[in-house]
Simulated assay, not measured.
Amino acid sequence: MGQEIGLCGDSGNTSEPHLHFHLQTSPRLGEGESLPVQFTNYRANGVLVERGEPARGKVISSSANG
C-alpha cells in the first residue's frame, strides 16, 4: 500500500502528535534548496485527494479508511 516514513508522537510542548520532516536538494543540513512534498490518495476532512499537499488544520487519513 505504501511505505512508512515515520512515526507520530508527542514528546514536547505541542497540542497534538505530529511529524516533522524536510526535503532538500543537498544531503548537508542548511545547504541546497527546499523541495515541495506531495502525497497521493489520502483524505482531507473526509474528501479524497488524488495528489496534493495537506493544508494546515485539515484532518488527514488514509484513503483506505473509507
Rank of each mutant, 00 (worst) to 15 (best):
P54Y: 02
N45Y: 08
R56N: 06
Q3G: 09
G46E: 10
I5P: 04
V47A: 04
N13F: 12
M1C: 13
Q38E: 15
L35H: 01
A55D: 11
G6R: 02
G12Y: 11
R51H: 06
E16Q: 14
G66P: 00
N45M: 07
R56Y: 02
N65C: 09
E50S: 08
R43W: 02
V59F: 09
G6W: 05
F21A: 13
Q3F: 01
I5K: 04
G6D: 09
M1T: 14
L35Q: 04
T14M: 08
G46W: 07
S63T: 06
E50T: 10
G12T: 08
G32S: 06
V59N: 14
N13E: 12
T25P: 05
Q3P: 00
V49L: 07
E16R: 11
H20E: 10
E53Y: 11
R28Q: 15
H18I: 00
P27K: 07
G57F: 01
N45G: 06
Q38V: 11
E53H: 13
A44T: 03
Q3V: 03
N45H: 09
R28I: 14
S34C: 02
L29D: 11
F21S: 08
G9R: 15
S15Y: 01
E31H: 06
S15D: 14
E53A: 13
R43T: 12
Q24W: 05
S11K: 08
T25V: 07
P27T: 06
N65I: 07
E33R: 05
Q24K: 03
R43A: 04
I5D: 04
E4K: 02
P27C: 02
V49T: 09
H22C: 13
S26C: 14
H22W: 09
E16C: 11
T25F: 10
V49A: 08
P54R: 09
S62R: 13
N65R: 14
T40E: 14
G46K: 02
H20V: 07
A64Y: 09
E16I: 10
F21W: 08
V47F: 04
